[in-house]
Amino acid sequence: MAARDIEMSRVDEDREAFLPAPAQQRRTTEPQYPPALVAVVVAFYFIISLAVVFLNKFILSSSEYKFPYPLFVTWFQLLVALGLLVAWAKLGQYKKAFSIIPPYEFDLSIAKRVAPLTVVYVLMLAFNNLCLQYVEVTFYQVARSLSIHFSILFTYLILGKKTSTAAIGACGIVFLGFVVGSYGEINFSWEGLIYGVGSSAFVALYGIYVQKSLAIVDNNQWRLLHYNTTLAILILLPVVMLSGEVSEILDNVQFLGDIGFWVLMTFTAATGFGINIAMFLQVKYTSALTNTISGTAKACVQTLLAAMIFRNPISFMNGVGIFLALFGSGYYGYVRYMERMTK
């Protein structure tokens, strides 16, 4: 699922989860956990987060089951995610280890208040998968690197909060990386770039709307996930139908009866849901600084793996742009972390 990596209140927007972990609820004094446990949690996040991006790219444009229908893919993944959410919540009633997710609920009066968030959420997911369809995975991070800028802009316009000079300087480095990386991209796509910028904008809006919507469900991100996922399925279904993707799938796709295709689709959707669990564990058992380092390191690994797996060509200018975008994002995360610690 393109969930961000959900980013999103954290720097690395590729952790495309259904809800950003409420990092703003962290205390300045954070508990210490055994290094082995922290390592396992970070590794789990790495694996799940990378799987989300690569499996989606594999389905949309690179696999034997090439399936270039991002809206239908997004809707199907939401459907599977809802099933897993309900099943996990049910299991939690009998097994304490799974009790982090409360029983499924859907109250119409609450749903109406959550609906604006869901509209932003659906657009974020759709633009993310559309971007992934048109750009190489090596350029994916650069194409979606402007979410930090939009976050600062929307935070000021909507919440009236200003950003420090150091954080703005970090954003300048990211923007330079965006420009240089776009100019140097060999397989450049205007469609992918536009969808990437759109995804960045909706990622930023989503993070703000989540902060405003959590109060509706007593600051419980899992309850909000119930409503958000259910509403997203209902909202996206007519969009999928009107887009013409369903008729194109029925007319052009020859492997709909292949169980291997549906296993791949379902497994990809499960990794999208798994991002929620991974982010929950990472926020609970690691520090804010570890989250920042982990996100930036994951983006570097993702770029290197994409170059090796998909054989994406990287020009010198493209490489410089990728480096600047990643460095700027990491520096921004560090600056914000230090600001939180000194408050």
Results as ranks from 00 to 15, higher is better:
Thr266Asp: 02
Arg4Glu: 05
Val203Gly: 02
Ala89His: 08
Leu108Gln: 00
Val52Pro: 00
Ser49Cys: 11
Thr138His: 00
Asn291Thr: 13
Leu324Asn: 05
Thr292Val: 15
Asn291Gly: 13
Trp222Arg: 01
Ile101Arg: 04
Ser294Ala: 15
Ile309Lys: 03
Ala87Gly: 09
Ala126Asp: 04
Thr303His: 02
Thr163Phe: 05
Ile6Asn: 11
Val135Arg: 01
Val80Phe: 12
Ile309Trp: 12
His149Phe: 10
Ser49Gln: 10
Ala81His: 05
Met317Phe: 13
Leu205Tyr: 07
Ala288His: 12
Phe202Leu: 06
Val283Gln: 13
Asn252Met: 07
Ile6Pro: 06
Tyr69Arg: 09
Phe261Cys: 11
Gly274Ser: 06
Val197Glu: 05
Met317Ser: 12
Met1Pro: 07
Asp107His: 02
Glu136Met: 09
Lys112Met: 01
Lys284Cys: 08
Tyr69Asp: 09
Ala167Trp: 00
Tyr183Gly: 01
Thr165Phe: 09
Ala111Phe: 00
Leu250Asp: 05
Phe127Lys: 00
Thr163Leu: 04
Met341Leu: 12
Leu79Gly: 08
Tyr331Asn: 02
Arg113Ala: 04
Gly196Trp: 05
Glu16Gly: 15
Ala3Asp: 02
Met241Phe: 15
Val53Trp: 06
Phe261Trp: 03
Val73Asn: 02
Val86Pro: 07
Ser189Met: 04
Leu231His: 01
